[in-house]
Design a protein around this nucleic acid. Structure first.
Ligand code: FES
Ligand code: FES
Lengths: 161, 161
DNA sequence: TCAAATCCTTACTTTTTCGTCAAGATTGCG
DNA sequence: CGCAATCTTGACGAAAAAGTAAGGATTTGA
């Protein structure tokens, strides 16, 4: 269970753009330099983000990228959904084992773990906007710890033991 | 953010063993057949799990694998930790970008997201035991939704907008 | 004591993901 | 116009993850 390189660096590029003032833009070389990646790599990431509608771009001299919506209206779960291949829906179809023991009896112990984790992460990320990630570590940190506290306190019956 | 193949199939092998009665064992070919993977693949997974202390094995005829502890005492977060490479601690060291803007100012927006997600998942998985995954989908499902409800209700201030 | 069944270990191949390259298209400016 | 700065796009190469192969080691039982 880990975040992929594409998710991380795509998110980083968006944070760079979220730092801009009104009317400012960043070019690919600028983004690449700040994140320590090649211009080609930045180009690919921004292309994905452009296709998904998070950023807009203008070509030619004085061109560059900028967010297509205010950072406060972009939530991290949308970003992750775009940068990550969604293999969740087709997960059970690609399972290699005996499906009678898994799907058809409706009694699979694995599926709820995978689906549940995915939803848990999505809900958590849905509570954080891109604006929250701009120069403010403590707030984001506190937010996640608040959620963790909730999870710890949940103590569901009948599963712990 | 997705579960790796090694995590999933390692967990599946453990669930197979958790289904056994006292004194029963499963051989590699048996596990491989049930999960639809090759014997070699099952061998590798069980070797990892054996090394980590989750299973024991006996060699020779009538040999096989069995859980080294009761399934009710094995929590999923321990399992995932072993099957997944822990790159979390060294994450910041391998970052390619300008570290002054990230580590040294103590004002990185990315780190709390990555660390927070990781802890969130770990806490959630720490509440589920292997025994809960044995032939009982509904309970596990309900448990995750309970946690999700908590997360949704958390509504932290100052980040949502 | 031998042979068969089983696990153990290392090395290799395949597949997927990650990142690069190079050519093309669009825009602004003199 | 014509050049330079910029984004766009698809194909390619490198790295990591996933999975396979093969030979070795241990135990049981005839
Ligand atoms: S994993 Fe899809 S039903 Fe078991
Ligand atoms: S990612 Fe480690 S400090 Fe920014």
């Amino acid at each position: 269970m880990k975040i992929s390189a594409q998710e991380e660096y795509g998110l980083r590029c968006l944070v760079q753009l979220a730092n801009l003032g009104a009317g400012e833009t960043l070019t690919l070389p600028q983004i690449a330099e700040r994140e320590g990646i090649s211009v080609a790599h930045a180009g690919k990431l921004l292309w994905l983000l452009n296709r998904a509608g998070f950023v807009n771009s203008t070509r030619g001299p004085k061109g560059g990228y900028f967010l297509s919506r205010p950072a406060s209206e972009i939530r991290l779960n949308e970003i992750i959904k775009v940068l990550d291949e969604d293999v969740l829906s087709s997960h059970c179809e690609s399972y290699t084992g005996v499906l009678e023991k898994c799907v058809h009896t409706g009694d699979c112990g694995i599926r709820p773990v995978i689906v549940g984790l995915h939803e848990l992460v999505e809900h958590a990320l849905g509570q954080v906007t891109l604006a929250a990630l701009v120069d403010n570590e403590e707030k984001v940190d506190a937010m996640f710890h608040q959620i963790e506290g909730m999870v710890k306190r949940a103590q569901p019956r009948g599963l712990g033991q």
